[in-house]
C-alpha cells in the first residue's frame, strides 16, 4: 500500500478554475467563512501569543463541548442562541477555573489549564454518550467542524443586496466586532500586553484588559468552533500571529499581515481540500502551518536561512 496512490492527480482546471465557474455560489461562502474565522482569530491571536496565553484558546475550544451539550439538554433545541450562550458560559468558566486553581494552589498555570479543559471535555463526552439518542450532536463535528456545509444553511438578506448564509453573517459580525474593539482599545491592549507596569501607571487596569480579552477570545472561539472545529481554532489563533511576527516587529504591520495570511490560507486551503477530497478545516491548517514553515525558513530578518548565512 503506497501513500501516494491515495492522492488524486492534480488537474489545474478542476482544482482552481471549476469551483469558481461551476460551483461559485457554494465556494465563495466556504472561502469567506474560512477567511472570517481565520482573520478574527488571527488578529486576536497577535495579542494572545504575545501574552503567552496561546493555549488558553485551545482550552476554551475544548471545553465549549459540555456547554453546548448542557444548553441543548436544558432547552431541547439546536437553536443558535442557547448553544452560543452555553458555550460562552463554559468558556468563561474555563478561564475562571484555570485562574482559581493556579492562584489558590501551587499547581502551575499550564498544568491547571490541562486539568480544567480535559475534565470539562470528558464531562461533555460522557453527557453526549449518556443522552446520545436525544442529542443530535456529533463529536466528529466538534473536532473537524463542518465548514463544507456552510452554504446549505439558511440565508439572510444583507442590505437587500446579497443573500448571506446565517453562519457567515454571524461570523462576519464577530470578526467586525473584533476588529473594531482592537482599533478602539489598541493602546490599552498594546501597553498592557508589553508592559503591565507602564499600563498601570498611565491608568489602564491590566486585569480588566485581561478579562476583556478572555471574553472576546471566548466569543470568537465559540463562533469559530462551529466552522473549523475545536482543535483547529488553535491553529487559526497561533499560526497567523507567529508567522506575521517572524516577518515584522511592528504591531500594526503584524495585524495587517495576519489578515493577508488569513486570506491566503483560506483560499489555498479550500482548493487543497477540493483537490485531495479531505476536510477543509484540516487543509486550511496544513496551509497555514506551511506558511509558517516558509516564514521560519525565509524570513528576511530572522529566517533560518538568513541566520545561517550570517554565521
Amino acid at each position: 500500500m503506497n501513500i501516494f496512490q491515495n492522492i488524486p492527480p492534480f488537474d489545474f482546471h478542476e482544482v482552481f478554475v471549476m469551483p469558481w465557474t461551476e460551483f461559485g455560489d457554494v465556494f465563495i461562502w466556504i472561502f469567506v467563512m474560512g477567511f472570517l474565522v481565520t482573520a478574527a482569530c488571527g488578529m486576536l491571536g497577535s495579542f494572545i501569543v504575545w501574552r503567552q496565553m496561546a493555549l488558553v484558546g485551545d482550552a476554551i475550544s475544548h471545553s465549549v463541548l459540555p456547554g453546548i451539550v448542557v444548553a441543548f439538554l436544558l432547552t431541547q433545541s439546536r437553536g443558535t442562541l442557547p448553544m452560543f450562550f452555553g458555550a460562552l458560559v463554559a468558556g468563561i468558566l474555563t478561564t475562571t477555573l484555570i485562574e482559581f486553581i493556579h492562584t489558590k494552589s501551587r499547581v502551575k498555570t499550564d498544568a491547571a489549564l490541562g486539568i480544567v479543559f480535559t475534565t470539562l471535555f470528558a464531562i461533555g463526552v460522557v453527557l453526549i454518550s449518556m443522552y446520545g439518542e436525544n442529542v443530535d450532536l456529533d463529536t466528529d463535528c466538534v473536532l473537524y467542524g463542518e465548514i463544507e456545509y456552510v452554504s446549505q444553511d439558511l440565508t439572510v438578506s444583507l442590505f437587500g443586496l446579497f443573500d448571506v448564509p446565517v453562519q457567515v453573517a454571524r461570523m462576519g459580525a464577530v470578526a467586525f466586532c473584533v476588529m473594531l474593539l482592537i482599533v478602539f482599545f489598541y493602546k490599552q491592549l498594546l501597553v498592557s500586553s508589553f508592559d503591565p507596569g507602564l499600563a498601570r501607571s498611565i491608568g489602564i487596569n491590566p486585569a480588566i484588559v485581561h478579562h476583556g480579552l478572555m471574553l472576546l477570545l471566548s466569543i470568537t472561539v465559540v463562533s469559530a468552533f462551529e466552522a473549523v472545529g475545536a482543535i483547529l481554532v488553535i491553529a487559526m489563533l497561533i499560526f497567523p500571529a507567529t508567522t506575521a511576527s517572524m516577518l515584522s516587529d511592528r504591531m500594526p504591520i503584524i495585524l495587517g499581515l495576519t489578515v493577508v495570511i488569513s486570506a491566503i490560507s483560506s483560499l489555498l486551503g479550500v482548493h487543497l481540500a477540493l483537490w485531495l477530497d479531505v476536510s477543509t478545516a484540516g487543509a486550511m491548517s496544513v496551509v497555514v502551518s506551511t506558511l509558517f514553515g516558509l516564514a521560519w525558513m525565509f524570513s528576511p530578518n530572522r529566517g533560518l536561512l538568513v541566520l545561517a548565512m550570517r554565521r
Binding site: G57, L143, I231, L232, A235, L276, S279, G282, S285, V286
Partner: peptide, 14 residues
C-alpha cells in the same frame, strides 16, 4: 507547542 499541536493535528485530520 500550540503550533506543533495544531499543525500536526491538521495534517493528521487530512
Amino acid at each position: 507547542l500550540g503550533m506543533v499541536l495544531a499543525g500536526f493535528y491538521g495534517l493528521g485530520i487530512v
